[in-house]
Simulated scan of single mutants.
Amino acid sequence: MLGQVQKSNIDRVFDTLDITRDGVLGADDFRTMAQRMVALREHMEPRLLAEIQGTFAAWWETIRQAADVEGNGHISREEFTAAAARGLDQDPEYVDKMIRVSEVTFRAADEEGDGLLTRSQVERIYQAFGVDEALSAETFRRIDLNGDGTVSIEEFVSAARDVWTSNDPKAPGAAMFGSVA
């Protein structure tokens, strides 16, 4: 059963994934997100480009298989929330499937390839996903666990995990997509 923080986060994840703002998730939303991740860099290595496209396509397929109960290629908010609740409750690998995209998103934004993101790189991820940029400063502060002014891939992925699993509104990643109830 989902806690209040999880419900709030899953609702915000749906809003973020619904790039077309048509109230349903579809393959176009995920293709657009992949294109936006590719656009984070002026020059994208072909291997990373293929990884981004493949990861977002696989993410869509995972979500579609779990949530598209009508088989129409579109996922409503209710279908998405119900599938997330089932996945979190029944599939020990569910969270890993949902956060894989955070790893490739991190690598897309890490232009220097040093395994660290600056505040401006995190802001660019927020812009690409269409998330309120005002949230990026608070998110950066919360997920920079060691306070060194950068976010490591471990910190970033751990925060993404919090989005799905934490019911603590003070958890570093619990408010990645907005304030939690």
Rank of each mutant, 00 (worst) to 15 (best):
T20W: 02
M33Q: 13
E79C: 07
S136G: 05
E45Q: 12
G147W: 12
T20G: 09
F140R: 03
T32P: 00
H74W: 14
E111G: 15
V101W: 09
V104C: 00
G130F: 13
F177M: 14
A82Q: 13
R124P: 07
R100F: 10
N146R: 14
D68I: 00
L135T: 03
D148V: 03
L116E: 10
L117H: 06
T105I: 02
M1N: 08
M33C: 01
R47G: 06
G113M: 05
G147A: 10
A159V: 03
E42Y: 04
H43K: 14
L25H: 07
Q53T: 00
V104S: 00
L25V: 03
S136P: 10
L48D: 08
V151Q: 07
K7R: 15
S166C: 05
T105R: 00
D15S: 14
A137K: 13
A108K: 01
R41V: 01
V122H: 05
E78F: 05
F129R: 11
Q4S: 12
A171E: 08
R12L: 15
K170L: 13
V163Y: 06
A58R: 11
R141V: 01
T62I: 04
A34D: 07
A137W: 06
A50Y: 08
E79M: 02
P92H: 10
H74R: 13
R31H: 14
Q4V: 06
E93R: 12
S76K: 09
A66W: 06
L145P: 02
T32M: 08
L17P: 04
P92E: 14
L48N: 07
G73P: 02
S158K: 07
A39S: 12
E61G: 02
